[in-house]
């Protein structure tokens, strides 16, 4: 056997080792599973060190994060609290704007439904200075055609009437005020009687005889007899029924949210009006805000006092 010169031994070894690995590659290309054992051994040998290293790094990181990196935490906490407060305020503002948009959309829809009825939208800008009287102030007045005794409504129902009109402001007496009153009638029985305020959230309906049948939850609408509001505008629903002498004591829950008024309509006429009925919302069992009037009338320009 011919011996390999020592200076060439490493070259032969190199060739052999490389050739072996090329064969190993070729085998792996042919069969994917080859070489798995070597991988299993290697990974098994290395993974304990990796696990220990991961544990050590995690420990160091925790130590760093919980002790040394806390220098700015207090400041960050304050900044986050400030940011949180600002975001809460922003959310409240956005919710308020969303609510306002909904209300304005309802008003617009109501206005478009009754486009022939002379009315003007107004924003509530203030309330009563004392708790005894239930009044609000609007941002529109004489300059906009608003006069005394004009009706004030929302798409939900009757609000009250104008008791004073100034140049750019008008004062409205709400239905809940003790001095307030509106000609009304029960929808089912068509019994008529005035509805007035008591200074409390619920209204009172007068002059309904004990003999007449009235159901709780029955709707009360305007009768048009007061010549302020058109007929069949929602006033409220019967909330309490008590027998009295000689008339029933009927308590009425106002249809309009009188405690949360922000935008209203002022009817710019005191002549009889016809308000069209809005199509009911899908799934809504509640009656429409503005019921149809039995009397066909011709809307006219705002009345001059």
């Amino acid at each position: 056997m011919v011996g390999i010169p020592s200076r060439h031994r490493s070259i032969f070894l190199l060739g052999g080792v490389v050739l072996l690995q090329v064969l190993l590659l070729a085998v792996q290309i042919k069969r994917d599973s080859q070489g798995r054992l070597i991988r299993v051994w290697t990974v098994g040998a290395v993974s304990p060190f990796e696990r220990a290293g991961a544990h050590g790094v995690s420990h160091i990181r925790d130590t760093w994060n919980h002790y040394f990196a806390l220098q700015n935490t207090s400041r960050e906490n304050e900044e986050l609290k400030r940011e949180n407060g600002a975001l809460k305020l922003e959310i409240t503002q956005l919710q308020s704007k969303a609510g306002e948009a909904d209300r304005l959309a309802a008003l617009l829809k109501f206005r478009q439904t009754n486009v022939d009825v002379p009315m003007i939208s107004a924003r509530v800008i203030g309330g009563s200075a004392d708790s005894a009287s239930q009044t609000i102030y609007l941002d529109r007045g004489e300059r906009d055609g608003i006069r005394r005794n004009m009706g004030v409504i929302t798409p939900d129902g009757v609000v009250g009437k104008v008791i004073e009109s100034y140049k750019d402001t008008a004062q409205v007496l709400l239905l809940t005020d003790k001095d307030s009153g509106v000609g009304a009638m029960l929808v089912e029985s068509r019994l008529q009687g005035p509805v007035g305020g008591t200074g409390e959230p619920l209204l009172i309906m007068k002059y309904i005889p004990n003999d007449d049948n009235v159901n709780s939850g029955e709707r009360v609408v305007t009768s048009g007899m007061d010549r302020i509001f058109p007929r069949d505008l929602p006033v409220g629903t019967i909330a309490e029924i008590k027998p009295g002498i000689p008339f029933k004591q009927l308590r009425v829950k106002p249809a309009a949210s009188l405690e949360r008024l922000e935008e209203v309509f002022v009817l710019l006429t005191m002549k009889p009006l016809e308000l069209k009925q809005e199509p009911p919302a899908p799934g809504s069992a509640a009656p429409s805000a503005a019921a149809p009037s039995a009397a066909a009338t011709n809307p006219s320009q705002p009345e001059k006092p």
Binding site: V18, Q21, V22, L24, L25, Q28, I29, D32, Q34, G35, I38, R39, W41, T42, V43, V46
Partner: peptide
């Protein structure tokens, strides 16, 4: 190679 996963065949880094 063994630690590099199945995308690296044994022998690639070896050679």
């Amino acid at each position: 190679d063994s630690l590099s996963g199945p995308t690296v065949p044994l022998g690639l880094y070896g050679i």
